[in-house]
Computed example of a mutant assay.
Amino acid sequence: MNQKENIYVLIPKQNEEINLKDLEKFLKILPKERVKKYYAYVKELDKKNCILSYLLLCYILNKDYDIFITPKFKYGKNKKPYFENIKKLYFNLSHSNNKIAGAVSDCNIGIDIQEQRKISKSMIKRVLNEKELDDYLSYTKEIERKKCFCRLWTIKESEIKRRGSSVLVDLKQIEKDNIKNIETFEIKDFCISISSEEYKEFNLIQISTESLLNYFERGTLCLNTNK
């Protein structure tokens, strides 16, 4: 398989507002377990991300692998999901606010997306080791510090997700230089990192929520897995 693979990031257009009721029509193509998860969420944003992240995954399978079945999940150690009905492919998803990142690969991967934001002292202390803290403090401008922390945070989180490790793992023990295959992208005010079991080159592809929904409204994926 081609070494170069794609990371897709779902970014709403400026002032784009998706009505939750408009998204609910896509529940018919989600597996029962995903639908159950949708109704368990309380916050509207979580409900939206539940549907959109699944649609993004289906979109990737359609576009990059010519797979047109609705994927079902099983869960491994520490509840890391994997495909139940698609063999020899791995996936990972991540979201931050209303942005969603996803990738599918022929090797185990972990992906994380985070917006750059003000960092509390307690968070810095929990995440950065001494060397990383020195690097962080070497930046004098707050915006540069935010970028530095965001890069390190996504690198660590993507590696944890690739391993399928517990969320309780000590983030200070995960060092960038010790991660074999890691790549980070920066777009405006957020970062995306992907850790892969094997060496890969990745393209970053941006897609709007509108484009994603239009794709499925054209009937590309019409299987109903809720029966």
Score class of each variant (00 low, 15 high):
N2H: 09
K4M: 10
Y8G: 00
Y8I: 06
I11P: 03
K25S: 11
K25P: 05
K28A: 11
I29N: 04
V42L: 15
K43F: 15
K43A: 14
D46K: 13
Y54P: 00
L56C: 02
N62S: 14
D66K: 15
I67G: 06
T70C: 12
P81R: 02
N85C: 06
N85G: 08
I86H: 06
Y90M: 03
F91A: 02
L93Q: 02
L93N: 02
S94Q: 05
N98G: 06
K99T: 11
S105W: 05
G110Q: 01
I111F: 08
K125W: 09
R126T: 04
R126Y: 12
R126C: 07
V127L: 07
L128R: 03
E130N: 10
Y136S: 01
Y136K: 03
Y139W: 14
I143L: 09
K146G: 07
I155C: 13
I160V: 15
K161I: 09
R162K: 15
S165F: 14
V169N: 08
D170Q: 08
D177E: 15
I179K: 01
E183L: 11
F185N: 03
I187V: 15
K188M: 09
D189G: 12
S193M: 07
S193W: 06
K200G: 08
N203V: 07
I207Y: 02
S211H: 10
Y215R: 00
E217A: 06
G219F: 13
T225D: 05
N226W: 12
